[in-house]
Write a protein that binds this DNA or RNA. Structure first.
Lengths: 104, 104
DNA sequence: TAAACATATGATTTGTTATTCATATGTAAA
DNA sequence: TTTACATATGAATAACAAATCATATGTTTA
């Protein structure tokens, strides 16, 4: 199917794509996503793993949460975050493959 | 294959992925890529299509060119740009599908 | 070969995003 | 029921990226 003619790209679509990519183009947020791919983690544990300030982590988690890439649940005093949208990883896999190919 | 255990994500890899996404997360650059998907275009024609300043277009084309997403050739007085890496579009297609799914 | 045209590019300005700082909120333990 | 602990959040600052401005470079035409 010829997407270039059947679905013209308008400004709104460009903006949506742009926003999606912006969320996953920040190193801190990417690191969080990869950490959570292995296991769910509390904010404190993400802090320790990335060696960053609590506030910085929380702010980035909010962005990830707002775009429904992660979800949170309370566990006692801490908040435990986990992935909510596995779809990003198929995209990340593609990019990783691409990077690997270009390295050769 | 379990990529989470066989290929640990290090800081350099995070940076590479981040850079790749940053290139395709700017609306102007995305617009240029979609324009070039249909046909190769001179800087002047891209200017007209996006209604933006020549310098802004040139600066963004440079970034796209540096990351080997587009290539340029001279044609008389003008420079004609075309896509150099169709791979991005498989990623863009995925994101578009994702957006479409979430809309429903 | 001077003028006009098309694009590139460095420097500055403007806009955006991430981090930090200070503090608020919510939960559990003393 | 005060204190400690864990996280969230608004405001300020710092870092970064895009657009603009001014001008340089390269090509064609008069």
């Amino acid at each position: 199917m010829d997407t270039s003619t059947t679905s013209p790209i308008n400004k709104e679509k460009i903006q949506s794509i742009s926003k999606e990519f912006k969320v996953i183009s920040d190193p801190t947020r990417l690191s969080i996503l990869f950490l959570l791919q292995k296991e769910e983690l509390s904010v404190g544990n993400i802090m320790l793993a990335l060696d960053m300030e609590q506030s910085a982590i929380s702010h980035q988690l909010k962005i990830l949460n707002d775009s429904r890439l992660v979800k949170a649940r309370r566990e006692g005093k801490s908040m435990v975050y986990s992935l909510d949208d596995l779809h990003v990883f198929s995209i990340l896999e593609q990019v990783l493959t691409h990077i690997k190919e270009q390295e050769q």
